[in-house]
Design a protein around this nucleic acid. Structure first.
Lengths: 352, 352
DNA sequence: CTGAAAGCGCTTACAG
DNA sequence: CTGAAAGCGCTTACAG
C-alpha cells in the first residue's frame, strides 16, 4: 500500500529514532543491549522508548529472526486435575523463560488437522504434548514438519523426546507398601488400555505383588476418570470375595473409588484401603487423604522445557527420554501396622 | 542481511509464483480466493501450493494486515473444574472461527505485567478474561492499550464487556426450591468475598428465602474451593442447631460439603440437603448427583466471542453486558416432597 | 485479469 | 561507534 497506514499511535523503532536523532538500527541495537552502542546512548534511547510506551512488534521480530518465541501446546481432556495443574506449572515456567504459550488443542475431541496446521502457520518454535490419546498423532505431525517437540507425562513409543516420572518404579513402591501393610486381596483399576503410563504403573505394581507372593484380586478399567473409578469400584464389590485394597493408577479414579466405597457404607481404610498415583492437589485434602505416589511436576516441566529449548537451538540433537523419580506420599487411605517401615527406596513425606 | 537466508525448504508465495509463472501478488490473490483471478488459474495455483506444502506465514500476514488472528486469555486458578471446562469450550469455538488462543496468564498467582506486556507485543486482536481475582486489573490494561476485551462469567464493574449467566435469578430459583421443599434451616457457603458472581447468587437466594419467611441459618466463606467448602461445612455443623440444607454458591464447594457431611456420618439428602451452582461435569455423577443451577457455558462463550469479534471489527462499539438465563438441574442432593411442582420460572431437566 | 512496488516493523551483514 | 540498506513473507493500492 502506498499510503501511509493510519497512525494507530503505536511507537516503533522509527518513531523512537526520529526523536532520538539516531538511525533506526541504532535504536534496535540499543534496545537489545548491544554493547557496541555507548552506554549513555543506550540509556537515552531506553528513556525515549519508555516515554513513548514502546512495545516491540513480535510479528515483525519473528519475521526477521525466523523465531517466534511461541510454544504450542497439545492437551487432551482436562477432566483429570493433573492436567490443569500441569498447565499452570507450564505457563509459569515458560513465562519465566520469556516464551509464550499457544493452545493448539485442548479437550477430549480429536486433534484436528486444521488446528495443528494453524499453529504451524504461526511459526511455533516448538511443541509440548501431554495427552494420552493425541500424543502419537501430534508427535508425528511435528516430526514431519520439523518442529521440535517434547512429551510430558508420556514416553514416546516411536519418535520424540519425552519426560515422565518413573511410573513403573512408582507402581512397584506402592505394591511393596500394600503388601507390607498386610493387604492380601488387592484389586486394581487401570486407565485407558494402551497408555504407557497406565501399563508401566501396573507392571511395577504387579511385580511387587508377585514378589510378595500375591496375585491381583481383580482388574478393571476406570477409563482414567472419576466416574470410571467410581463405577469400576462398584463392580469390584460385586465379586464374591471383596478386595481388601484397591490401587487406582491415578488419583482421580482413586477418589471415585473412595466415594463409591463410602456410598456402600464401607470405611476407608478400615474396611478397604485405597492407593492412587499422581498426588494431585485435592488428593491430600480431607476427606481423601490419599496415599499416593507424587509426580514431580515442577521438575518434569523444567526438564521438558530444557530439552525442548535445546532442540530449538539445535534441531539435530539426539532424541532424549528422561525418567524422574517420584515420591511416596503416605497418608491415611491405607492402614499401616504399627511400626511398619516404609520401603527403602521411598521416603514418607508430609502432605504438601 | 544481504545474503539469502538459509533455505529452510519452506514454501512461500515466492516459490509458488516461480513455479506457476505468475507474479507473487497473483499467487496471494489466488490463494485468498480473489474473484479477479480466473477460476482456472486459482485452481492451478492452489494445486501448486498444495504440492509444495505451502503454509502461509502468519507473522508476515499479521505484519501486513495489522491483524494477528490471536486472542489472549487470562484465566485464574483452575482448581474449580468450571474453568477447565470453559477453556475447552473456548478453544473449540475459537478454532471454529479460525482464531488462535494465546495464554496470557493462568493460575492462582498475580497477573504479572510482563505477561500482559508480552501478549500485547504479539499483537493479540482481543482478550478474554475469566478470573475473579484478576479480572479488573486485566481489563484495565486492555482498556489502556485499546485492546478489545470481554469477560466471561464476570460482569465488569467499571469498564469492559461481559457475559455471564443470570446469577441472581439462579440464586432466586434455588432459594425458592429449597423453601418449597420444606427446608427451614438453610445455611450458605459463599465464594471469595467481593466477587460479583458470589454476591449475585447470594442476593437472589436470600431474597427468595425472605419471601418464604426464612432467614439464612448461617453464612461462611468457602473461598470457592473444594477444601474451603469442606472446611466451612464442618464449621457449620458445630453450631448448636445444625442446618437442614446447605447452599454452596458453586458446585466444587458443594462437593466438598457433601463429602464433609458423609464424613460426619450424615446422609445427603436424608439428613441434610445440598445445593450447588454451575453444573460442572462431575456434579451429575454418582455419588454427588447435585441439584444445581446450570450455567449455559456454550452459549455464554458464543455470545462473548460475538461481542469480542464485533469490537475487533469496530472498536467504537458501545460497551455491552449480557446476562444469559441458566437452568435448574433437579437431582438427588435435596429431598423433594412428592408432587412438589418446580418453580414456574425454571424447568427440571434430566442430567446431561 | 495481472504485475511491479511499497509497506508492515523488525534484525543484522556490510561498510564506513 | 553508527548508518544505509536488504531482507523476512505477506497484503494491497496503483497502474496498466
Amino acid at each position: 500500500m502506498r499510503t501511509k497506514a493510519p497512525e494507530r499511535g503505536r511507537a516503533t523503532l522509527e518513531t523512537i529514532s526520529r526523536e532520538a536523532g539516531v538511525s533506526q538500527s541504532t535504536v534496535s541495537r540499543a534496545l537489545r543491549g548491544d554493547v557496541r552502542i555507548s552506554a549513555a546512548k543506550r540509556l537515552e534511547i531506553a528513556a525515549i522508548a519508555e516515554l513513548q510506551g514502546y512495545a516491540p512488534n513480535a510479528a515483525a521480530r519473528a519475521l526477521a529472526t525466523r523465531r517466534s518465541g511461541v510454544i504450542g501446546l497439545v492437551l487432551g481432556d482436562l477432566h483429570n486435575p493433573f492436567y490443569p495443574e500441569l498447565l499452570e506449572v507450564l505457563a509459569l515456567n515458560l513465562a519465566r523463560r520469556g516464551l509464550r504459550l499457544m493452545l493448539v488443542h485442548v479437550g477430549a475431541g480429536a486433534l484436528r488437522d486444521a488446528d495443528m496446521e494453524a499453529a504451524l502457520q504461526y511459526q511455533i518454535d516448538g511443541c509440548i504434548i501431554s495427552s494420552a490419546q493425541l500424543a502419537s498423532m501430534a508427535a508425528e505431525t511435528c516430526a514431519r514438519r520439523g518442529i521440535p517437540m517434547v512429551m510430558v507425562n508420556r514416553i514416546a513409543r516411536v519418535h520424540g523426546n519425552g519426560v515422565s516420572c518413573n511410573n513403573e518404579e512408582g507402581g512397584r513402591i506402592l505394591g511393596e507398601l500394600v503388601a507390607a501393610a498386610g493387604y492380601r486381596r488387592v484389586a486394581m483399576i487401570t486407565g485407558n488400555p494402551g497408555t504407557s503410563t497406565s501399563e508401566d504403573r501396573r507392571r511395577g505394581f504387579e511385580a511387587a505383588l508377585r514378589a510378595a507372593g500375591l496375585n491381583l484380586h481383580g482388574v478393571l478399567s476406570g477409563q482414567s476418570t472419576y466416574g470410571g473409578g467410581h463405577a469400576a469400584t462398584k463392580e469390584l464389590l460385586k465379586a464374591g470375595e471383596k478386595p481388601d485394597a484397591i490401587f487406582a493408577i491415578n488419583d482421580i479414579m482413586a477418589m471415585g473409588a473412595i466415594d463409591a466405597l463410602r456410598e456402600q457404607g464401607l470405611r476407608v481404610p478400615e474396611d478397604i484401603g485405597v492407593l492412587g498415583f499422581d498426588d494431585i492437589r485435592v488428593a491430600s485434602l480431607p476427606p481423601y487423604e490419599l496415599t499416593t505416589f507424587a509426580q514431580p511436576l515442577a521438575q518434569m516441566v523444567e526438564r521438558a522445557l530444557d530439552i525442548l529449548i535445546a532442540r530449538i537451538e539445535d534441531p539435530r540433537l539426539a532424541r532424549e527420554r528422561v525418567l524422574i523419580e517420584g515420591e511416596l506420599r503416605l497418608r491415611k487411605s491405607i492402614a499401616l501396622p504399627d511400626g511398619l517401615s516404609v520401603p527403602s527406596s521411598s521416603r514418607a513425606t508430609p502432605s504438601r
